[in-house]
C-alpha cells in the first residue's frame, strides 16, 4: 500500500515536471551550425551575388575557422551560405570588396 502510494506520487511528480519542461514550444540547444569544410573557389561572375559575410571562430562551438558568405541566388527562395577558408587570398579579396561596398553605402 505505502509502496504503491509512493510510486504513484513519484509518477505524478514526474508528469508535472515533464509538463513544465515541455511547455515552451521552441526547442534549441548549444549545437551550433558550423562549417565542416571549405569551398575551393567562387567564380567572379558569381561573386556579385554575395550579400554579406560572417566569421566562424574556433572558440569551442566549431572546430575550423571559416568565412561564411551569404549569397542571393536567383532561383532560390532562401539565401545560400557558402563556407570559405579565411586564409585564402580570394576570400580576403571578397571581404575587402564587401567592406568597401558597405562604406560606400553608408
Amino acid at each position: 500500500m505505502e509502496t504503491q502510494s509512493s510510486t504513484m506520487k513519484f509518477q505524478i511528480l514526474a508528469l508535472l515536471l515533464l509538463l513544465a519542461c515541455m511547455y515552451p514550444s521552441i526547442a534549441q540547444g548549444y549545437y551550433e551550425n558550423c562549417c565542416l569544410k571549405y569551398v575551393t573557389g567562387i567564380k567572379k561572375n558569381m561573386r556579385r551575388n554575395i550579400m554579406s559575410y560572417r566569421v566562424q571562430l574556433t572558440d569551442g562551438g566549431c572546430n575550423i575557422p571559416a568565412v561564411v558568405f551569404k549569397m542571393r541566388l536567383k532561383k532560390q527562395l532562401k539565401p545560400k551560405s557558402v563556407c570559405a577558408d579565411p586564409r585564402s587570398d580570394w576570400v580576403q579579396a571578397i571581404i575587402k570588396e564587401l567592406d568597401e561596398k558597405n562604406k560606400r553605402a553608408m
Partner: peptide, 20 residues
C-alpha cells in the same frame, strides 16, 4: 543567419544563374 548586412545595388544577375 545573424550576419553583417551589406546593401548590394547591383541587381544585374542574369548570367549568374548559369553557375549555380
Amino acid at each position: 543567419e545573424h550576419d553583417y548586412q551589406y546593401h548590394d545595388h547591383d541587381n544585374d544577375s542574369n548570367d549568374s544563374a548559369y553557375d549555380e
